[in-house]
Design a protein around this nucleic acid. Structure first.
Lengths: 137, 137
DNA sequence: TAATTACCCTATAGTTTTTATAGATTAATA
DNA sequence: TATTAATCTATAAAAACTATAGGGTAATTA
């Protein structure tokens, strides 16, 4: 299941992408508009800042704003920060690889084999979807 | 992340599929061979029995065995029983649909739009993969 | 029919992850 | 300097996951 963190993060980003202006939008406004707990959203936006496509400004008139064009913000980056590894098991993860403790040989592991397919399939979706694609009209 | 329940369930099924004979295999043997807690595995195999492709026999010489041919056991069925809905949000689930409480309109929801793609992509993998495909020879 | 084997069922408990909430701090603006 | 809004740290409630325990039930064998 998708975590609420990811759900909220995606909605917040989409809200920013849908703005006409590139002026900072206050967390409070995003939270109100998307039905999200403000304090929770604070943490989420903060973690998204590390990606480099999200900027922030403090003080009056401050808030969050997109640095890059939505079409240049791939879902791979967004999902990795919000939800963590795209792979469902660490032994098939590109960015967070780790050997399974209970598995003697990956080559002969049926779970490994199946999850490799799933990872490739999901990766294909995320790589070919940008924030711009999530905007409705 | 894939739950251990699913991981263990897949390994157990693969172990059964790899047997030459169709005689029942004791839980203890599967657990030992795949490094799984026996008691935990009992629950897992029990829940898999509801699918109809897994049979069991009590008493001496008893255990679990596959009723259908591995090539006729699709991952969609297996994953739904072990891991739950294939969709990452209930509002795009085919078998477990539920409206999101925080979302006024699915048509204009960016999360909905993205997760629809992900679901279709995963469904495609699971529908085209059978237990037989997981066997490494 | 008695003993054994192994599945079946219920309850519970420890751990981890998720989902927040609270309060203090820092930075920018007017 | 007062106000505003992001930032940081800590903590806590709730849910999910990962088992473990122990007895019950059914089938097989001797």
């Amino acid at each position: 299941m998708l975590s609420r963190k990811t759900k909220y993060g995606l909605k917040a980003l989409t809200y920013l992408a849908g703005q006409k202006t590139k002026e900072p939008i206050a967390i409070a406004e995003i939270a109100r508009h998307e039905n999200i707990s403000q304090k929770f959203l604070e943490n989420i936006l903060l973690s998204l800042r590390s990606t480099g496509f999200l900027g922030s400004k403090k003080g009056k008139g401050g808030g969050y704003y997109l640095i890059k064009d939505p079409s240049e913000i791939p879902m791979t980056t967004v999902m990795r920060v919000l939800e963590g590894p795209i792979a469902m098991v660490s032994c098939v993860s590109l960015n967070f690889y780790e050997k399974c403790d209970d598995c003697p040989d990956e080559q002969s592991c049926s779970v490994h084999k199946l999850m490799l397919k799933v990872r490739d399939s999901n990766l294909d979706v995320y790589r070919n979807t940008s924030l711009a694609d999530l905007l409705i009209k």
